[in-house]
Amino acid sequence: MSVVKCLEHDYGDFKIAIHNWEILDHGVTAFLGPSGSGKSSVIRHLLGLEKSDQLQWYWTEGAEQVDLASMPIRDRRLGVVFQNGELFPHMTAKQNIEFAADAAVVSRGANRSEVAASVGRLIQDLSLERATETLAVNLSGGERQRVALARALVGRPRLILLDEPFSALDAELRRDVRAMVFRVLAEHKIPALLVTHDPEDLVGLQGKLTRIQDGRIVEDRSMAITTEGGRG
């Protein structure tokens, strides 16, 4: 279990105030809220892209507890998938994944041969074999999100943050990509924080559900396997 404390930020016309929030260190924590409720701002604070002086984020690893909020961005060992993938457009799909693999080796001391093997495995797991040599700008929406996921997973992050990763996809593709993403996350045993405004994204998930409204948590409970509407 990890605990986020004292996340406060005043934007003038909008304020975020989260005093104590637990994020699972296994399975999926869903972070649900309507557009403009502050979900993405919370994510940017957790990633370290925005500063909040009081923020603490305690992560337990074995007997040790570390405060991720006090670490520089690159030392937090997090993965992220944004709405549009945010791939590096001048690289191929494979080069995008390899970039994150190299970063893990260089800055986190990951084992080079293990990381190289996991590049191949992720390409296979996410059915990207035919897209590896395609430039990121030429990938389809579904391929882009799968490459973004592979890129985020290859360094074996503590937690992967999925910021509305399916909202740019059409309904049918969305269902397929969603199923594949959660299958791969479970296989690789990497916990995820899923940010979404759409309860449909929670169908079939088990874990924890947090609802945010106007920058404040209004519901925080465990989530059983859901079949529709995100209600467990």
Binding site: L47, R77, G79, E86, F88, F99, A103, V106
Partner: peptide
Amino acid sequence: RQLEVAEIFGASAKMIVRQILWP
């Protein structure tokens, strides 16, 4: 945004310059 993503993955300043910015 690309620079933010690279930093989240742990890319060093040298990697960011050589592989993201310069190309």
